[in-house]
Design a protein around this nucleic acid. Sequence first.
DNA 1: AACGACCGCAACCGCGTCGTA
DNA 2: ATACGACGCGGTTGCGGTCGT
Length: 339
Amino acid sequence: MGRPPCCDKIGVKKGPWTPEEDIILVSYIQQHGPGNWRAVPSNTGLLRCSKSCRLRWTNYLRPGIKRGNFTEHEEKMIIHLQALLGNRWAAIASYLPQRTDNDIKNYWNTHLRKKLKKLQGSDESSTQEGTTSSSSQSNFSKGQWERRLQTDIDKAKKALCEALSLDKSDSPANPINLTTAQQTVPGSSSYASSAENISRLLQNWMKNSPKSSQSNSETTTTTQSSFNNLSIGSGSSSSPSEGTIISAATPEGFDSQLFSEGNDFTPENVGIFQVESKQIFPNLNSENGILFQGESKASLEESQVPLTLLEKWLFDDAINAPSQEEFMGMALGESADYF
DNA sequence: AACGACCGCAACCGCGTCGTA
DNA sequence: ATACGACGCGGTTGCGGTCGT
């Protein structure tokens, strides 16, 4: 009945990726570029299914991924976008190009949902009299509610499109532009980030000694320079096996291309590690669907949060970052009317 | 110090969509 | 037009780490 598995389960490795596998995958993608995932396991010898390879790349190894704590601004963006788009994590992630959909999804499920629940709780208690927006929502008849919702959705869509076209014209007032501005600098952050990713896996690899200086996700703040300072299989490498592993595990030319001193992740030799404009604003063509038509009301309902207290919390930031106002207003201004 | 509960993240699974023959 | 393969997405799970008792 169901679709057969994407790969035969026999001989397919599951579970956490090893640094060796990471390097093989990165090496392959460096040479061939991402895509054609079906061919990746057979061409690399990885005992992983294509899906697993793609996931590992997109969620972990892909350059430009920022890890570690979410900033308050990112948090607010996510909340706004979630309220606007629902659980379309990929669409949301497209506005936070440094974050993966998986990351955002996890962050939402583990942090923000609780946070909003709290806010919702205090909001409800503060509006017990039923005079405010959130409780008045229930006063809508179903038909009214749906019509109103559709109207607001249309408005939100328009506003979002406008915001995006403003961004296209490089308006400094556009908050989305601000949030992604660092991505668009060619060859800087994206390469640094890719270096960070590889650095991270190398650090994991090299932490034979349990006393790694950075034990938590803060390793993600590894700097470009620290990456550069990593010496693979050279003098500072305490374990003689490290260099051996790398040369054994990496396809030809990989270490020289990626890790030779002063030559790592330059735009010249790592062409694929470029942030494509598509990656930054894939929604410009509306493919990822800022589309609400046909969306089940239940899912929308579930995804919507009361916005009175939340609103306050969100707007707190607006003073510090006035350029965000437009976007926030777009997301909240109209829909908040009936909440 | 030992144990259990809880939390966060990486990875898996199943389904939907898209492209192509 | 349709069947099929590949890819993408969202929900869920499992495991390792952390915290509290």
